[in-house]
């Protein structure tokens, strides 16, 4: 058990370091326009990378995932809240799978 806890501690350490080091050492705003621009695109790139193509495998079958994806796209296009979009997509997948199976 001691070895496992040591492993957990090391995992926690290497999970925290990449998060905290930039916060400590980069307290000044970055001046380079290129790097500023680069960093400003990070959240959008991360979102795109996390969502596609992973969403297609999120529900166990591609058909229901496509249904959920379409519902989410439609509601997001009309700028509904995060909660609304999330819950409606889950319901759509659930109902679709209920009738498809």
């Amino acid at each position: 058990m001691g070895r496992i806890l040591l492993a957990v501690f090391l995992m926690a350490l290497v999970s925290y370091l990449p998060r905290v080091l930039p916060m400590i050492f980069l307290r000044k705003r970055i001046q380079s326009p290129f790097f500023q621009s680069f960093l400003s695109y990070v959240p959008y790139a991360v979102l795109g990378a996390m969502t596609f193509p992973a969403i297609l495998y999120a529900t166990g079958d591609t058909a229901s995932a496509l249904v959920g994806l379409s519902v989410a796209l439609l509601l997001a296009f009309y700028e509904k809240g995060l909660m609304t979009v999330a819950i409606c997509a889950v319901l759509a997948v659930y109902v679709f799978q209920f009738f498809a199976l």
Binding site: L47, M50, T51, A54, I55, A58, T59, G60, D61, S64, A65, G68, L69, V71, A72, L73, A76, L82, V85, A86, C88, A89, V90, L91, V93, Y94, Q97
Partner: peptide, 12 residues
């Protein structure tokens, strides 16, 4: 299965 889509719907 249905809950699996929650985070992705939020991302969208």
């Amino acid at each position: 299965n249905a809950l699996g889509i929650t985070l992705y719907a939020m991302f969208i």
